[in-house]
Design a protein around this nucleic acid. Structure first.
Length: 476
RNA sequence: GCUCCCAUCGUCUAGUCUGGUCUAGGACACCGCCUUUUCACGGCGGUAACAGGGGUUCGAAUCCCCUUGGGAGUACCA
């Protein structure tokens, strides 16, 4: 049987980091098994679901390099892929369970429910202990109430036994008989709830594997009951660890940038984000840490999941971004970095060759595009630096001598740049004729030409600095 | 409260299933040195962990139990 794996987000917000990781794992696993990756939209929460989120989600997944084989955007043999378009299927199946005595109508009002929950808690019983009030109501009588239009939901009749299943990452998991009560499967507004549709869809869409985050582990018991009620074979389950923030709690908006689109907007490389996310809970068999998703697809498997929650660390993500950025070809690097600079940045007025040399040099110094403008100041800024370090260099007599000499030389230069050869001649002149060496030479030279006390290698920086900038710095 | 899950450097992790080769390996961050000045990169080196307690065993990070700690769930959210 070919693997069929789904990612089933609810379109109630933007795709977040945790969702992207789950989607990545699902995608990777489906591809590793040569199977299909299905996108299903779980929009049964009418209040919060928005079509625009669905659209954004598909776009963000695409940016991540995750494309589905089936889904609302692609079609397929198991559609529709939006739960809101499948309500008939759910309602019919829910009715079937009622007919078979495996579910029943419940007429509990919100008030009653609340009171019963409180009562149960006072008696130190599970909150759901009294929720089965209408469990044994005569079906004919229940039907009559329904027909007269009384507000009702459909509750699943908990068989009251232990459930055990083998989770592909957690091993054998057992739930006690009273872990959940008679839970709702069809709301009073006629919409089915998550645990019900999820099972129906995974069953009818013939999913072979359900990969999701640990927060769903407890839901599995309800789902197992439903599969059993229909005599359906459940898929294999794999619950991977949760992503947490600094406070060790489930990652959410309050932890800062948690939607994928924010990383896209900040110009992170999608392959870096995926690489980092992939390693949060999964490890490469050879302990490699930098790789592309294509590279690991053939070797991706469920046995290398770590069971404990992983802390999402942006600093480490930046490192991954740097590594992937440095692996880009000259052309791709240009396409990546150049657009991140402001439109009026002096970088854009330079030649293509200059731009390539420039990026090739500065890519070594940064991990993210956001750090680039600050580094480029050494080439374009005409504002002299201030501070102790600068003052110290300025206090040396040699510095004044260097500046004087450089000023003379530069005023005679007509070309657009000082060549590396010329720069070496200047250095040698200062060394031999002016008898300046060591830090007095290099620091003095740097200050004279760049106005800075510290910075990258002068041999590279000087030939990249436009002569008019240098002249302006020297007051020419 | 109840249920389920988890527990190796500050962080991500390898090693746990199939006890010995683990004086616990790698990565991020941090620190130091080298790359004839600085910073970054790179190279080299360093600080830093098996939550605690009991067992089992000749031998335990690895197996068992308890404690503690953390997380998730406990909805007519997903």
């Amino acid at each position: 049987m070919t693997a069929r794996v789904r990612f089933a987000p609810s379109p109630t917000g933007l795709l977040h980091i945790g969702g992207a990781r789950t989607a990545l794992y699902c995608h990777l696993y489906a591809k590793a098994k040569g199977g299909s990756f299905v996108l299903r939209i779980e929009d049964t929460d009418l209040e919060r679901s928005k079509r625009e989120y669905e659209v954004a989600m598909i776009e963000d997944l695409k940016w991540c390099g995750i494309e589905n084989n089936e889904g609302p955007n692609k079609g397929g043999d198991f559609g529709p892929y939006r739960q809101s378009e499948r309500t008939e299927i759910y309602t019919e199946l829910a009715q079937q369970l009622v007919t078979e005595g495996k579910a029943y109508y419940c007429f509990l009002t919100d008030d009653e429910l609340e009171k019963l929950t409180e009562k149960a808690q006072e008696e130190k019983k599970s909150p759901h202990f009294y929720h089965g009030k209408y469990r044994d109501l005569d079906p004919a009588e229940a039907k009559k109430k329904v027909d007269t239009g009384e507000t009702h939901v459909i509750r699943f009749k908990n068989p009251g036994k232990k459930y055990t299943f083998t989770d592909l990452v957690r091993g054998e998991v057992t739930f006690p008989e009273d872990m959940v009560g008679d839970f709702v499967i069809l709301r009073s507004n006629g919409m089915p709830v998550y645990n019900f549709c999820c099972v129906i869809d995974d069953w009818k869409m013939e999913m072979t594997h359900v990969l999701r985050a640990e927060e769903h582990l407890n839901n599995t018991v309800r789902q197992l009951m439903i599969y059993e009620a229909f005599g359906a074979t459940p898929p294999e389950f794999a619950h991977c660890s949760l992503l947490v923030g600094e406070d060790r709690q489930k990652l959410s908006k309050r932890h800062g940038a948690t939607s994928v689109v924010q990383y896209k907007d900040q110009h992170f490389l999608p392959q870096a984000l995926m690489n980092y996310l992939c390693l949060l809970g999964w490890s490469h068999p050879e302990e490699k840490d930098i790789f592309t998703m294509d590279e690991i697809t053939p070797i991706f498997d469920l046995s290398r999941f770590n069971k404990s929650p992983a802390l999402y660390d942006i600093e480490k993500l930046k490192h991954f971004n740097g590594e992937h950025m440095r692996r880009l070809s000259t052309e791709d690097l240009m396409a990546y970095l150049a657009p991140t600079l402001a439109e009026d940045h002096a970088f854009h007025s330079q030649s293509r060759e200059w731009q390539e040399n420039c990026l090739d040099f500065f890519k070594e110094k940064i991990n993210t595009p956001a750090e680039l403008p600050e580094h480029l100041k050494v080439l374009f800024s005409t504002e002299p630096e201030t501070g102790e370090a600068v003052d110290e260099v300025l206090s040396w007599e040699s510095t004044a001598a260097i500046k004087e000499y450089i000023k003379g030389e530069v005023s005679n230069i007509d070309s657009a740049f000082i060549s590396e050869k010329q720069f070496n001649e200047f250095t040698n002149h200062c060394k031999k004729e002016l008898k300046i060496k060591g830090k007095f030479l290099f620091k003095g030279m740097r200050l004279a030409i760049t106005g800075m006390a510290e910075g990258p290698d002068l041999k590279v920086v000087i030939p990249l600095t436009p002569i008019e900038v240098i002249k302006k710095r020297l007051g020419l």
